[in-house]
């Protein structure tokens, strides 16, 4: 039983969002980098839990990034996972990235591929579905619960206005979100072990880039809050009705 967990590097959730070079580049100065929370808290931790139940499970991590993403993949290895693969590319195109992961997935013969539901920087929610298409596997997105019995997964997923429970046989691609697992903190033993775990670097295969980022914009600043006195609540109702016209 082999699980491939997709890991990406994102700015910390409290990072100040700013751009440089005429709004064409994200300003990385002072930014703390973290493992994308959906990849870490939900998909990676769930894979580790599956391995804790069944020692025959092996977990490989994959990231697409340049050498500066290695601290992130080591941090992920400190939580768990047997080895990691870094595809050496700085591409931001979903199709290019998914093609690389699908290639590794085909070579490795994985039974299960986990992604986070999206990255918190690009918010694409695209990679999982693309990997599934490129490997011709079923895809369950927005999973909130994942159970495995033999080669059949029982998954709860978010649908419009509720949840749906589905059974799917492996191989399978799943995008994970809150509910699948709980956040863990790496311990010292894990951090030490991560230093010597194999981290293989491979060059990307040829693939088309179908999109590119031209520029960034920041939203216009808010005009500022209009405060209503706590003893004049009906004034708020009036403002929402007559001025904001939202009720």
């Amino acid at each position: 039983m082999k699980i491939l967990v997709c890991i990406s590097k994102t700015p910390d959730t409290t990072s100040k969002i700013a751009f440089t070079d005429g709004n064409t580049k994200f300003d990385e100065s002072g930014v703390q980098w973290i493992i994308n929370p959906y990849d870490e808290w939900y998909s990676l931790v769930r894979a580790i839990e599956l391995k804790e139940k069944d020692a025959a499970v092996s977990i490989h991590l994959i990231t697409i990034g340049t050498a500066d993403s290695e601290p992130i993949i080591r941090k992920a290895l400190a939580l768990g996972g047997d080895e990691a693969i870094r595809v050496n590319s700085n591409s931001s195109d979903a199709y290019f990235i998914a093609t690389q992961i699908a290639e590794i997935a085909k070579q490795g013969g994985y039974d299960l591929i986990f992604t986070g539901k999206e990255t918190i920087d690009y918010n694409g929610s695209s990679i999982g579905g693309m990997i599934a298409e490129l490997t011709d596997a079923p895809y369950i997105s927005l999973a909130t619960k994942f159970e495995l019995a033999g080669t059949t997964a029982t998954i709860t997923r978010e649908v419009d206005g509720g949840e749906e429970v589905a059974e799917v046989d492996l191989p399978l691609v799943v995008s994970c979100q809150k509910g699948v697992a709980e956040q863990r903190i790496p311990n010292m033993r894990g951090i030490m072990a991560a230093r010597t775990k194999p981290l293989k670097v491979v060059e990307p295969i040829a693939a088309d880039t179908l999109s590119s980022i031209i520029s960034y914009e920041l939203p216009p600043a808010k005009a500022g809050v209009k405060l209503v006195a706590a003893d004049n609540v009906s004034e708020l109702a009036r403002l929402l009705h007559e001025e904001a016209k939202v009720i």
Partner: peptide, 21 residues
């Protein structure tokens, strides 16, 4: 929810670029 499940998958199948969101 449906778009998040399907759009990127169709894009990959058609080898079409996607902007999601």
């Amino acid at each position: 929810q449906t778009g998040k499940a399907v759009a990127a998958r169709v894009a990959a199948r058609l080898k079409a670029g996607i902007v999601s969101g």
